[in-house]
Each structure stands twice: as structure tokens, then as C-alpha cells.
Design a protein around this nucleic acid. Structure first.
Lengths: 305, 305
DNA sequence: CATCGACACTAAAACTATTTTTCCAATGAT
DNA sequence: ATCATTGGAAAAATAGTTTTAGTGTCGATG
């Protein structure tokens, strides 16, 4: 037992903030406590971990950066352990850090959050949203414990629990002739002007759907925001493809309406991933169970028609 | 940060020893320090973890036992983290707890220990020996980080790095007519009196070799000790089968000599396993590398002829 | 080039926590 | 009944942490 959790936490804070002073502010503690902790760690490891830049802060040496990674991952384990130990009383307790693929968040999150807080009132969920790249970074950095995302966007190595298949829908503006049909085909769409959601991964995915059918979409605009996308469709600039649609998209009140695409071969799986560090945590297990429950009970049926 | 590593360690010691008093002796501290730590843990978790039995020690409640498991696994992680952090200086440092399948230990261990201490002087190895059952218990309980054993004896789920194939040999006593042959066949052996090593797994294995050839060995004695086994062969009670033989077995000076068996279909793989908890430890990685090195450089050739 | 501000380090004092010491009550074995 | 063993409690001692206050270094600024 050569280090205490406190020392490690101080060390981590210094590395994160890049300065003893800033770390002290963050931790509500005096600078000297922190230097003391660092001294111990450097002395025990017998290596220079941080290089002091007078008046400029601190920069980690190579060894320091390496040590930082290990410390961070251990503190991560400690955090999970702690909430896990507190959960022996019965219900899982703690703060679960959950990321969600942003475009799907407004549809997927509410039912999950509702059920989790109903079943496990002692679990607090801290949300983060982001695109696929950001999410996998958050996961691998251990900034979040779990993430809701498409399987297509998660590395093979990662555990993935599928919840539902999200069949792409076409949002057809009212002025398009297609609006009279109950279903549309890719060929119908190919000539119409298209608004494309241009996030990492989605671009290739939506274009790929057409390519697989030997067609090319007629992209007139791209945007990184799904609400801007809906706005453009509303304003009759063209149609758009969306994997997940809400009641609004189906109502027809917004100047467009969601239609199923009849000739689609497969629909991407949406589900939940989690870090290896978190996999044994009872909190994660509980949320996982909830997600599975919702999925099997058809809790996402309104999204997939 | 609701617990300190110290408190967790005390708690674990109490659970392991079943008594505050014994834990105090083990940890070289006073009883009261331990009760204090337990009080904190019970207070923070808000559950009764240990039931005090005056004059009899302490028994964990259900929750306490559950908490104990989690604490133990976390302390395990902490231990690995610590040696890992100390290894940032360059060479891996720490205490590696290594188990070895007992009958093979005298032959397998020396070259490994020699190379490890040459390449990584800061790694201290703590050895445990045992039969296959004991070894898998040690591994799953996290009492050891790595184990040297036969693949046949390790669960599929566990990572296994093969080192060499150990072809069974026959130890033929000097008075046997077979001693004149360079090689023996299973049929040759079937009629001779056999001494059988009777450890969990070996019994079935050695008998299986004969069964596969449609023969039945003529077992006259069984023993659980490989040195007793050799003694019995020396004393001309019969021959024995052994997967790993040393120079002594080949010298012919002991009243018997090791002979290859010509009609054997396959030879069991011997190698090294490790716990999931330990897999990221740089110490484990280094030892693993050494084992692989020795194997590829033929460091075990003298054992397999 | 003097000055100021941001920064980190040190030493001593103040504080907090842990540990030991000491004594106690409960229990079970003899 | 007696004794050894157990855990619990309180005060004293010890160890560890934190703050305070002062020092020195560097870079920016006038």
C-alpha cells in the first residue's frame, strides 16, 4: 500500500489541469497539499513524473503521462467500485455517466431515463451527447460508463447489447409528389432533392443505402444538425433520410411527413455499449437490464413504426 | 472518495480471518484500529456487514459477504495498479504470484525463474504449487496472477499461452525386459505392472491414453506424489508414465530410465494462464513475454526430448 | 531594467485521522 | 466459579494532512 487514493486523485487533477494552482482550486485545497502528494508519488516511483515550469505550470514527462493514464484508469475502477460497494445495501447507487448518439437522444433517452429512475431511484444519470467519434472517445477515455449508439458505430471489440433495429425513414416535404404515396422506394427518392445529415459516419451510411441499390442521391444541402435538417425539409428544400422518427415527424403538421422506404434490405441495430472497466458494476448491470426490458416490452416501437 | 484503501484492507483481513483479533495480528496493528475501519465502512454503506459474536469472532452477513467479494476484487485491482505504476520507471516491478502445476514444477520453474530474474530484476516471484483443481481455484480467487499448467486442465474461457508440448514418456525399471528397447509401444506396456500418478485429472488422462489404443493398463499402485512415483519405479514395482522428465530420468542411474512411447497420437500442451484482472499489468506482460521467449528459443527442449 | 503577477516549493504550525493503550463486558470452555 | 478469548469504548499518543506564510523563478509589461 504505497499510495493513497487521495494522492492519486491529486496527481490526476494536476495532470488534467496542467498546473498545481489550478488543481488546488478545483479540489478546494491548498497548493502545498498537492505538491506533497506529488512528491510522495515521485519518490515512491523513483521517477521524474512532472517537469516544473516556473511561472508556467507543470508538464508531464513521458513517464508522467504514462503514469497519468494508469492512475486515471485506476481511479475509474475505484469510482466504479465505490458505487458498487454502496449498492450492497440493496438498490444500485451512484452516478452513471451515459453518452448518447446525439441525433437519437431526444427519442431514445426519455423512455430509458424514466424507467431507470422508476426502478432504481438511487441511480443518478449524468448525460453526455455527441457524434459517434466523440462517443467512442468518451468510452475509451473512461469519461462515460455506457453509451447508447448504433452497432455500426461501435468497435467490434466492445460489448454491445442491441435494443431495436432503426429502419431508415424518408421525411417527405408536403410539396413533393411523393407525399401522396404510403411508401416510397429508393428509386422514387433518387431524383428528388435530398438534404443530408453530415455527421461522421452518417454521410457514408446514407449514401451507401443508395449505392447498394445502384443509385445516386441528389444531395442539395448538408447539415450537421438534425433539427436544422428538419427545418430545411419543412421549408420544402427537399426530403431527408432519418433512422429514428418521433410522433412529430409522422403527424404531417410540420410541412413534411415520415414515410417508410419499401425497398430497404436491412436496418441498423441500435443499442447500448459499456466500458470493460464498468462491466462488473451493479449500476451498469441494472441499467443494462432496464434497457433490455424496455426493448423486449416494445418500449421503442413508436420509433420504428 | 468515501473509503480509503487502508479501511478496505482491514475489512478484507477481518473477513478472511473471521475475527478482528486475528486480523489485527496479521496486520500487526491493534484491534481497535480495525473496528474503527469497519465502523466507517458499515456507516457509509449503511448496512450491517458483520455480525459480532462475542468471544467467537465475527461472521459476515449476506451483504457483508457480498461486500467482501467486491472489496477483495478491488484490492486485487489496486495491487496490480500499484506494481504497474511502479513500473513506469522502465522495468516492471512488483510481486508476481505464480502458481505451477506441482508435478511439472521442478522442471519448468527453474528456467523461467532464471530468465525472469535476469531480464527483470525488480520482479519478485511468489510461488505456489498445487494440483489442477487448486490452481484453477487460486486463479479464480485472484490469489495468484499467473499459472503454469496444462491447457487440458484450464477452462476454455481463460487465456492460455502455449509453451511446449509434453510428450508422455515411460519410466521403465531396470528389471523390465522393455529396458533393452529404444522405444516402447503402449501394447508393450499394457501387460507390465504400472504405477499410476493419481492426481485430479491425471488418472483419467493416463488411463485414457491406453483406452484410446483399445488397451487397459495393469495398475498395481497409485500415488499422489511424483517423487513417491519415481521411488516406486526405482524399487522395481513397475513402470510409470510421466509427461515431463528431467535429466535424472534419462540418466539410468536411478534404477529406471525414461523411454519415448512410439505410438502416441498427441502430446498435451503446457503453457501459462493468467487472470483477467492481471492481464493489463506490465509485470504479467513481461513474464508472459519471457515465457514465450524461452519457448521459442527451445528452452524447454531438454524436457521434451 | 525594474516591477508585477503567476507559479511552484519549503518549513513550521494547526489540524485531523489513525493508532495504541488501557480497561470493560460478554461469552464459552474447563 | 474461573479463565481465556472475544469485541467495544475512551483517552492519549502518534502519524499524516492541510494551511499559512514566506521564498525564488520566470515571463510579461511599462
Amino acid at each position: 500500500m504505497r499510495f493513497t487514493l487521495k494522492q492519486l486523485r491529486y496527481f490526476d487533477a494536476v495532470l488534467r489541469t496542467g498546473s498545481v494552482a489550478r488543481a488546488a482550486v478545483e479540489l478546494n485545497i491548498s497548493q502545498s497539499s498537492i505538491t506533497a502528494a506529488i512528491d510522495v508519488i515521485e519518490q515512491v516511483t523513483g521517477a521524474e513524473l512532472l517537469r516544473r515550469m516556473p511561472a508556467k505550470g507543470i508538464v508531464p514527462t513521458d513517464k508522467g503521462a504514462e503514469a497519468g493514464k494508469r492512475v486515471r484508469s485506476f481511479l475509474e475502477q475505484a469510482r466504479i467500485f465505490e458505487s458498487d460497494l454502496l449498492s450492497v445495501t440493496g438498490d444500485p447507487t451512484g452516478i452513471l455517466r451515459l453518452a448518447c448518439y446525439a441525433p437519437t437522444a431526444p427519442y431514445v433517452l426519455p423512455p430509458i431515463l424514466r424507467r431507470v429512475s422508476a426502478s432504481y431511484p438511487s441511480i443518478r444519470i449524468e448525460l453526455k451527447e455527441g457524434n459517434m467519434q466523440e462517443i467512442s472517445e468518451l468510452l475509451s477515455a473512461g469519461v462515460v460508463d455506457m453509451a447508447l449508439t448504433y452497432r455500426r458505430l461501435t468497435p467490434e471489440s466492445q460489448p454491445f447489447v442491441p435494443m431495436f433495429r432503426a429502419k431508415p425513414m424518408a421525411l417527405i416535404p408536403d410539396t413533393s409528389p411523393l407525399v401522396k404515396q404510403d411508401e416510397v422506394t429508393l428509386a422514387d427518392l433518387a431524383d428528388e432533392p435530398m438534404i443530408l445529415l453530415d455527421l461522421p459516419g452518417t454521410h457514408a451510411y446514407f449514401c451507401g443505402i443508395f449505392e447498394d441499390a445502384g443509385l445516386r442521391p441528389n444531395v442539395v444541402h448538408t447539415t450537421k444538425s438534425s433539427s436544422v435538417l428538419r427545418g430545411l425539409v419543412s421549408a420544402q428544400f427537399g426530403y431527408a433520410l432519418m433512422n429514428i422518427c418521433g410522433p412529430n415527424d409522422r403527424s404531417g403538421d410540420e410541412g413534411y411527413i415520415a414515410k417508410p422506404i419499401s425497398d430497404l434490405s436491412d436496418a441498423p441495430q441500435f443499442g447500448v455499449t459499456y466500458t470493460v472497466a464498468a462491466q462488473r458494476s451493479s449500476m451498469v448491470k441494472s441499467v443494462l437490464k432496464t434497457c433490455r426490458d424496455i426493448a423486449t416490452k416494445g418500449g421503442f416501437d413508436h420509433l420504428i413504426e
